[in-house]
Simulated assay, not measured.
Amino acid sequence: MTIVKNSQPSFKDEADRRKYEEVLSIARPNAMLETMRAGGLALCHTMSIARGPEIIAMAKYAGYDALSINLEHERNSFGETVDACCTALMTGMTPVVIVPSLQNDWVSRMLDNGAQMIIVPRTNDAAMAKQLVKFGKHRPLGERPLAYNPAMQYRIPDFKWTQYVANETTMCVPMIETVEGLENCEEIAAVPGVDAIFVGAHDLSDDMGIAGEFFNPKVQEAIGRICKAAQKASTPEKEIYIGLGGLDPYPDLFRKLRAAYPNIRFTNAGRDVIMLSQGMELALSKFRDAK
């Protein structure tokens, strides 16, 4: 897979170009990011309780672009999350990790162990978004230390170009899920190094005082405001994408929002908890009349 870049790098000489190409040849492509850069919709499987590598292989075969692991709400351990990230990388899926909080040891450490997208919950202002970029991007955008990691196949052929390619293939994503974050969404989207914004529709509606009312015009207007903020912050060199969470039970509503805002480029498209419970109910329904 060819890595799609925001812009072509500049080289001081032919040797510099060769160093860049060597780094590029070992980098694990970010399938989700490439789909979004091409204008498509990236779909994530949410791993909650079914954490075996078999599930990741099944998700890849089903056609998912990414594997999403939520460390804010789920019981996944650090080691389990690293194993899942590495397995996803090897299957060609993008490992997405929602960290519990905005802490350097969560953001940088997860990126050092396979994550290609970091989402920080309850990002309420531009200062928090700047901290995320500081922790999650290498220089010149941030201050993330360079380490041997699975996304680069544990190699650093050249320091400068490894930093550059890592910045191109990993994503720092604030999550807006509060009224405060909504009110500051324009400033959050404009922070250099922010790659996308993830909208937590459940918690955002709750914080607005209309919990779960996803068809309420106020909720849809709030999502629209965030989408417009991302559009305004985008440049010809870099588009800021939008992801929607919590709407997987409402695909028609999601289609409506994406039709209105084409910069919505990724979403959760099913989670194992719901799939398993619905599958159990369906299986039982076929035998109930035999009792």
Results as ranks from 00 to 15, higher is better:
residue 57 A to S: 14
residue 224 G to P: 01
residue 245 G to L: 00
residue 277 S to C: 12
residue 186 E to R: 11
residue 60 K to N: 10
residue 216 N to M: 00
residue 201 A to S: 07
residue 25 S to Q: 02
residue 30 N to H: 04
residue 225 R to F: 13
residue 150 P to D: 04
residue 250 Y to A: 07
residue 208 M to E: 11
residue 138 H to G: 03
residue 281 E to I: 13
residue 11 F to Y: 04
residue 93 M to T: 13
residue 146 L to M: 06
residue 65 D to F: 07
residue 184 N to L: 01
residue 279 G to N: 05
residue 54 E to K: 10
residue 156 I to K: 01
residue 196 A to D: 01
residue 235 T to K: 05
residue 264 I to E: 11
residue 57 A to L: 14
residue 209 G to K: 09
residue 51 R to A: 05
residue 66 A to M: 09
residue 237 E to D: 12
residue 3 I to E: 09
residue 151 A to M: 06
residue 163 Q to M: 12
residue 105 D to H: 15
residue 83 D to Y: 13
residue 64 Y to F: 12
residue 2 T to P: 15
residue 228 K to G: 02
residue 79 G to C: 11
residue 155 R to D: 08
residue 65 D to L: 06
residue 79 G to Q: 15
residue 147 A to S: 13
residue 90 M to R: 15
residue 195 D to P: 13
residue 38 A to V: 00
residue 280 M to D: 07
residue 254 F to R: 11
residue 158 D to Y: 08
residue 281 E to G: 00
residue 127 A to D: 14
residue 96 V to Q: 09
residue 287 F to G: 03
residue 290 A to R: 15
residue 209 G to H: 12
residue 162 T to R: 01
residue 108 S to C: 01
residue 177 E to V: 04
residue 10 S to I: 15
residue 99 V to Q: 07
residue 144 R to V: 10
residue 113 N to P: 08
residue 276 L to Y: 08
